[in-house]
Amino acid sequence: MTLALPPRAVRPPAPAPPSAGLHATARIVARADAAGATRLPVLDGDGPLALRRIRAGAGQARVCVVSAMSAPLGGDRLALEATAEAGTALHVTAAAATVALPGRTGETATYDVRLTVGEGARLDWLPEPLISARGSDLRMTTTVELAPTARLVLREEQVLGRSGEETGALRSRLIVRRAGRTLLDQETAYGPGGPGWDTSAVLDGNRALGQLLVVGPEFEDGPAEVRLLGGAPEGQPGDGPGQGVLAPLAGPGALATAVAPDALRLRRLLDEAARAVTG
């Protein structure tokens, strides 16, 4: 007796669907010229990431990231690479906040920032906040490679939802390596699908969070002093001025971590940390 088997629908494994979104990689390279001034031999915007040179003081180059359109949308693959070669000083800001928006397909968007700072160079990486709009799904990575004598000032701010809106899904990882060793590795995962994020151990109702990282050989002589930011009375979830701490890392750097009800109050806390750490 034979069993009549139903015809098996043989389907090859689905190839990774071509992302519906756009792919763009913008690049900045800062290089010291013979006189020691910082030049920008590479300043290549791409897609939504337009780059604009700003007039700067002697010895420093300034770049502003100008978003030419709303991005990242679901499915987008964006990357931004900046290299401050040995002996340069590069200062990067943004013209406006970045808003992660849902795409047509519900696909995840990615945004990868890769920063490299050479010997004796300094990079100030001070973008505007990243806002996670309702329904969006963004995975962001920021990877920093520092030479032993490199200096870095890096600010990262995330806002969960536009005003009065629920947040999208936002997963962000920051990895900072210095002289080949990992100095800092932090991941945040907020929004739908992330367990435990909307709790009193993590955010307690706050909708803006951020970090200010300062790394440099000067911290080898004396670690930064611990400082509580905001001086806020406890127990005002979601409506207080926010709170934070500035503290030394295990290696030569200091990190301010802060949470606040909104972007404005978050920036106040991080500015307080910046003043404290730079003197």
């Binding site: 911290f219 080898e220 670690p223 030394p248 890392l249 295990a250 290696g251 030569p252």
Partner: peptide
Amino acid sequence: MHLDHKDT
């Protein structure tokens, strides 16, 4: 280098 505990 580890700044938390330089002493051995």
